[in-house]
Amino acid sequence: MMKEVIHPMDKYLRTEIFPTAFCPGCGCGTILNLYTHAIDELGINPEEIISVTGIGCSSWIPSPYFKGDTLHTTHGRPIAFATGVKVMKPEKKVVVIAGDGDLAGIGGNHLLHASRRNIGLVVILVNNLNYGMTGGQVSPTTPCGIKTTTTPFGNSEYPIDIASVVAAAGANYVARWTTFHFYQLKECIKEALNKKGFVFIEVISQCPTSYGKMTGLRTGLDFLKKFEKLSININYVKDRFFTDIEDKIVVGKIVEREREEFVNNLKKINEEKIKSLQ
């Protein structure tokens, strides 16, 4: 008799709706895998995690696949929704997973201000360098010169170094890795899950279907080889600013600070106020 094979991470997943909607070779599966491993290795009870997501392929990583509380919101707004969640549930780990279009594009302002506020969210920005779900349009992180469905003659704009922007805006923790760095990325997610304040991880990820179709990177492996070749650790670079993935990918921890977390600050005000009224 054949024994049923159960993946050790299945317990964290809504496997009843498998297979996932991700294309073959997509980086979203890798991130889901590492995310569950990080949670497993830390021994976090999934009941302690509230996932908040936006619209786009990477938002599907937890919504619906991660078996935990999931608030699947509107395009660009997961950080704003998560702000309300965290204020009311500061004891929970509130995790936002969404894409570059969602968090750096339409929702960029929420990202900026949540960083500044230093609210205790763990934000994983899956940067697949384009709008994958809608068929491969140019995004705020698409490198200059790249052809996409809406830049048929090459992108005239320059990509944003979103991790550096978040670091400058005041987040307590900012790092960047790629889906090639699966060990480092998993360790980074573990570190992030235990960190107070606003935590931001940019994951450069592959989208063989939409980004790949215009750039000739046809398989997940093509991307991973490129990530390997172009990545350079932040400890070995003079100019830490990430230019774009056609040139160099600066990986590693960009910033770590210990500023007091936002909801904690609010709570202190309430405690003092209520005490003074008694």
Binding site: I50, V52, L71, T73, T74, R77, A80, F81, A82, T83, G84, V85, V87, M88, K89, N109, H110, H113
Partner: peptide, 13 residues
């Protein structure tokens, strides 16, 4: 946009 979003998030919390 953020205001109404935060309200909805808080209500679900």
């Amino acid at each position: 946009i953020g205001s109404i979003s935060a309200v909805i998030g808080a209500v679900w919390a």
